[in-house]
Simulated assay, not measured.
Amino acid sequence: MNDSGGAALPPSTAQHKRLGQLDDLRAIAITLVVVMHGYAAFFSRPSEMLNPLLIFIYAGGTGVTLFFILSGYLVSMPFILAGREGRSYSTLEHFKQRALRILPTYYFYVFISCLVVGSFEKFIPALLFLVSGNELSIYSNVWWSLATEVQFYLLVPLLFALKKRVLLVCGVVWALLYFYCAHFLIPGNIRDYAWITTSLLFKAPAFFVGAVIALIVVSGRLRVTSGMARLGLFVVFFALLTLLLQDKAVNDRPGYAAVRPFDIIPEALLWGCVFFLFLQNSSTVFGVCGHFLAKISFSLYLVHYPIVFIGVVVAKSHGAVGSWERYAAFVATLLLSIILAWVSFKLVEEPFLRLKNRARAPRDGLVRRVLP
């Protein structure tokens, strides 16, 4: 959408204009995740937090929620556009595009991780997205979110094939199952059932919010054309997000989502509002920097955690205990992560992205402008 009034833009034009805004959102998401892992590794977590910047740094895992909203928006968009044109979007095309997007880079990192660890015992399970946490030392820590993404990819074609009444029944069943797990099953046995909180069952609200935004955008029925109105709404939603994330910033630990299982719902809704406001901008906010970070975001997501961990070990071994020394080590790990992510993007990711775009069906050309 643009700032001017009048009729909504044609879908192809509107989608093209939103590419930069999506890059802004990817840049925000990856920055939150990477900075959180790095900063929390080098600096102790305060017992209380009032500084909004520190809140978003220590609660940077919320960037994953934003990534899930992006996936919900982007992956559902071809199905929504196809339905608007009275046709169906090929399930085979969907799986082909998603596979070319994530599998080559992810499999490359799985292979390298097993090679570095010196054991291929987890190689096959990892290829099937069954390895996460510290199962493959420091290298698999962030892989859980990819498993959740894949669960969503597998489910999307089925959801769009269902009748509305059946879809409604599925929604009710999901809500009941979610409430049962969150209120009864998990609290009494967090250690055994914490994995449920990282599954699609618990992260579904974020993907759903992204899909709803895609529906709203395609319909063209809701726009915020005033720049001042957008700014005011952004301040409100940012303040609400800050309040929501304050407890997470102080207490976020492995298993935190099991302690606060319902937080994902308001978190996804607030990020969804911010997401929608970004799409209303007529230009990007972060420009070239945002585009660069968005471009390497997948590789950066996969490579940064081991680099941060190794950076902490090296810094401590060299006696980096002073504040400025830790800041220098923190910045160095971020820069090294970005450099390695760029190399990974150029050598591994980009060639398959080109293949992915060439393999896209001709009639889906307008979707090509927005899907990563």
Rank of each mutant, 00 (worst) to 15 (best):
residue 214 A to C: 02
residue 214 A to D: 04
residue 212 V to I: 15
residue 197 T to D: 01
residue 192 D to Q: 14
residue 196 I to Y: 10
residue 194 A to N: 13
residue 198 T to Q: 10
residue 191 R to Q: 15
residue 187 P to C: 07
residue 202 F to A: 00
residue 187 P to F: 07
residue 198 T to W: 03
residue 191 R to Y: 14
residue 208 F to A: 12
residue 191 R to G: 11
residue 188 G to R: 14
residue 212 V to S: 07
residue 198 T to M: 06
residue 209 V to W: 05
residue 188 G to A: 10
residue 194 A to L: 02
residue 214 A to W: 04
residue 203 K to C: 10
residue 196 I to V: 15
residue 216 I to F: 03
residue 189 N to H: 09
residue 194 A to S: 14
residue 184 F to G: 00
residue 195 W to T: 06
residue 206 A to W: 05
residue 192 D to S: 15
residue 185 L to W: 11
residue 215 L to V: 12
residue 197 T to N: 02
residue 205 P to E: 08
residue 204 A to L: 15
residue 213 I to G: 00
residue 204 A to T: 05
residue 197 T to S: 04
residue 198 T to Y: 12
residue 183 H to W: 12
residue 187 P to G: 08
residue 206 A to R: 10
residue 208 F to W: 02
residue 196 I to D: 05
residue 181 C to G: 03
residue 205 P to D: 01
residue 191 R to D: 15
residue 191 R to F: 12
residue 205 P to C: 09
residue 212 V to P: 03
residue 215 L to N: 15
residue 203 K to I: 02
residue 190 I to R: 13
residue 200 L to Q: 10
residue 186 I to T: 06
residue 196 I to P: 09
residue 209 V to S: 08
residue 190 I to S: 07
residue 203 K to P: 00
residue 195 W to M: 07
residue 214 A to R: 02
residue 203 K to R: 15
residue 206 A to F: 06
residue 208 F to E: 02
residue 204 A to Q: 03
residue 183 H to Y: 13
residue 192 D to R: 12
residue 202 F to S: 02
residue 198 T to F: 05
residue 184 F to N: 10
residue 201 L to W: 06
residue 183 H to A: 13
residue 206 A to I: 10
residue 195 W to H: 14
residue 189 N to A: 06
residue 206 A to D: 08
residue 183 H to P: 00
residue 183 H to R: 13
residue 195 W to F: 14
residue 207 F to D: 04
residue 206 A to L: 10
residue 206 A to N: 06
